[in-house]
Design a protein around this nucleic acid. Sequence first.
DNA 1: TATTGTTATACTCTATAACTATA
DNA 2: TATAGTTATAGAGTATAACAATA
Lengths: 169, 169
Amino acid sequence: MSAESTEAREPGEPRPDLLAALTRISRLGAAMTRGRLVERAAEAAGLGRDRPAVGVLVTLRTAGKPLRIGEIADRMQVVGPHITRQVQALEKRDLVRRIPDPHDARARLIEPTEAGAEAANRYLAFLLGWFGDTLADWPAQDRDDLIRLLARFTDDATARLALLDGGED
Amino acid sequence: MSAESTEAREPGEPRPDLLAALTRISRLGAAMTRGRLVERAAEAAGLGRDRPAVGVLVTLRTAGKPLRIGEIADRMQVVGPHITRQVQALEKRDLVRRIPDPHDARARLIEPTEAGAEAANRYLAFLLGWFGDTLADWPAQDRDDLIRLLARFTDDATARLALLDGGED
DNA sequence: TATTGTTATACTCTATAACTATA
DNA sequence: TATAGTTATAGAGTATAACAATA
């Protein structure tokens, strides 16, 4: 535990700056998914409006290697059947294909097709370009700090979240 | 090393650090909502598992003043009918009440009851406590930087997002 | 006529349960 | 018998459309 700052947690007014930050994150998240940014990125990539399927494609793209259904589900933190359906939809559009898993005949590996990989690249380029533009006017120091601290924070928080879910107490 | 960082935006591999950060944010968001953190906070506050209704209550609590339905919807970035239903549910549980809007007889103002305000406080205390604990081991400088930069970033991004949605092209 | 809110309905996304095939 | 995946169904959350009341 830390010195003063984390102790000033009265039920009424706990750490106003943190509360403000969390409130903003929540609003930004809502604005991103519900707003048009993600849809525009998908359309700019020629992927239409199927957001969950785009998520699968991006997961495969950032993984950089073929993944099994269960592995995609883990990375996206959703259950298996959901991925099954998205992969089927992507397969119909020739954006992914299934290849045998040499180690396990029950599973198959999913990989993007060339078209799928290119679409994922365009999607990510759009999205990262947009965020890059948002940060373009920032001092380089602040920009680097934010990206670095954010990565660390999400790692810490995700790890603690896993503890919470695992501990079930 | 961030001199040319914003220029290295090739379609294939654009700003790996930013991509990594965004991927993590997305995963953290999924883990938070789908995981049990929000539900635990709500249960710790005696609010049960009705997440959307909790969101309304927290919105009212952080606003610090009675809000109209439309204003709650704006702040939560959802449409009106959704708020109508959540407010009705909260009203049945005596967590909010409606008071007349002195300036407009069409609208009514929603405000938390004492029980509602206390539950919102407990909820926020739990959530902020959890995040505070996550940051507890951090150097104070990093902690402050993160909160400050995050607030600025979400403000900038939200403003740009509004432009995008408004400008419809 | 424009605006605030409500009611009723539909859609998107994800979860759970039951089943098949391979390990 | 355990595990990977699929199929079928159910649920949560939010949107759209049609309407009522007041400005």
